[in-house]
Design a binder for these strands. Structure first.
Lengths: 242, 242
DNA sequence: TTTCGCGTTTGACCTGAATCAAGGACCCGA
DNA sequence: TCGGGTCCTTGATTCAGGTCAAACGCGAAA
């Protein structure tokens, strides 16, 4: 089976060296199982802006995010986009047990994913209940996350939305760089443009820009250039979120 | 084990007579399994307005909706409510494999649910992979639904929201009265008040009322009294949703 | 260094839904 | 049939965020 990944010392079993090995759905599998899973999956690199899944397409692939950040989105009949959430390393993508892919998935940054043909994955899951339970737990967690996102979309002001995003990014960026559950970063590079932030939060670019300006004026955050954020008053940022 | 339900001829195995037997997660179980499941669950009746789950509580129970309609909601720190979705017969409620209940669940109409202690249910699921797979499929479906709801909350106008709700109710009410996949009802009783509709759609009662008036003026719907809706132009209603 | 171009910021204005404030209609019991 | 309460509708006003338009600033190419 061909593989895109060539950066690992052992191409034939990249799973064992996988950076998300202990956090993704494959976490509970033993070495034999990992080796089997390894055989049905492959690494794929995405450059920023590249799409992995298209809403409405036949659900051919499922995947795990290994590195980078993706957005999940859907579109109304008349073309308005709605971001459904963000995917970070160890998150699962795609729609097992479904005919069609329910959302678009697009890389916001350069990213690496580990993809499986859906039918292969389902057969493997069927034969390995531990994986299936892991997938269930992860899906339930995903449902919780998506419901928290609803609160953001349905009830939060522009200020609350941006504060929520900055906190989330600072936490999840820490988790994906330092491995385990590190403390959130106080200085970090925004992985996305203003326009992408606007899309993520369901706002316009102008509103996002104004909110950044306010947070800067209130000295809650500092910025060096357009992308580098320093959290000066995490307490106030958390107070805004409530 | 005590049971609230007394309306069934065979109290000791109400599952077999259950109206959602073929649609809920228990659908794939054989008679022996059903009998076992029956022993760990019990029926509970809810009157309109009564709560079944409270956000943040220890996750003690999970449940299946048998009859009626419930709303799932969450609340911001400062008291704003956000509806996360509606639950109809055969829908699953609660948070297996989780410590705390992630949302409030409140009956909008009189309702019957089939409840299980979470630990009992998890043990049973563990021992019966078919149930576990069913739960996974249902959870994935729930995730899809919750993401569609995001589109409503994040991007739809008041008019689009109400049209979406009217179509959904007319479809799901048909499904729950006639059993299988019946065609949507053209005349139906709204199961909820204007205020509840406003909460569901993330709008105010005044906005909802104004939108009802507009739909009536445009002769897209007719109304007899406050609760009875007649869909006059389903095509236009669907066009509004897009 | 200059210039170009794009991403971003800022300003002026508009709009859809929230808010505030009356009324109106229906239900139920007396 | 009459109150009286609740739910619903309607109107006037406000406001957050969207829209339109213009200027800014930073990096890359010349």
């Amino acid at each position: 089976m061909p593989m895109d990944d060539t950066g690992t010392s052992d191409e034939l079993n990249f799973c064992q060296a996988c950076s998300i090995r202990n956090r993704a759905i494959c976490a509970d599998l033993d070495d034999t199982e990992i080796a089997l899973l390894n055989r049905i999956g492959r690494r794929k690199h995405l450059t920023a802006g590249e799409s992995l899944l298209w809403e409405g397409d036949e659900a051919v692939f499922v995947a795990n995010v290994v590195t980078g950040m993706l957005k999940l989105s859907t579109t109304t009949g008349d073309g308005r986009e709605q971001i459904l959430g963000l995917s970070y390393p160890s998150d699962f993508l795609g729609r097992p047990y479904g005919e069609t892919t329910p959302y678009d998935a697009q890389a916001l940054t350069d990213a690496t994913v580990c993809i499986f043909r859906r039918v292969d994955f389902e057969r493997f899951a069927h034969e390995h209940p531990r994986l299936e339970r892991k997938l269930l737990e992860r899906t339930l967690g995903e449902l919780d996350r998506s419901r928290r996102w609803m609160l953001l979309l349905g009830r939060m002001s522009a200020e609350e939305r941006l504060a929520t995003l900055l906190l989330e990014i600072s936490e999840r960026l820490a988790a994906s760089t330092c491995g385990g559950d590190a403390s959130p970063l106080d200085v970090f590079e925004l992985p996305v443009s203003r326009q992408q932030i606007a899309d993520i939060l369901g706002l316009t670019i102008e509103t996002v820009s104004r909110q950044f300006t306010r947070l800067r004026e209130d000295e809650i955050i500092g910025m060096r250039g357009r992308r580098e954020v320093e959290v000066l008053r995490r307490d106030l940022l958390e107070a805004i979120v409530g």
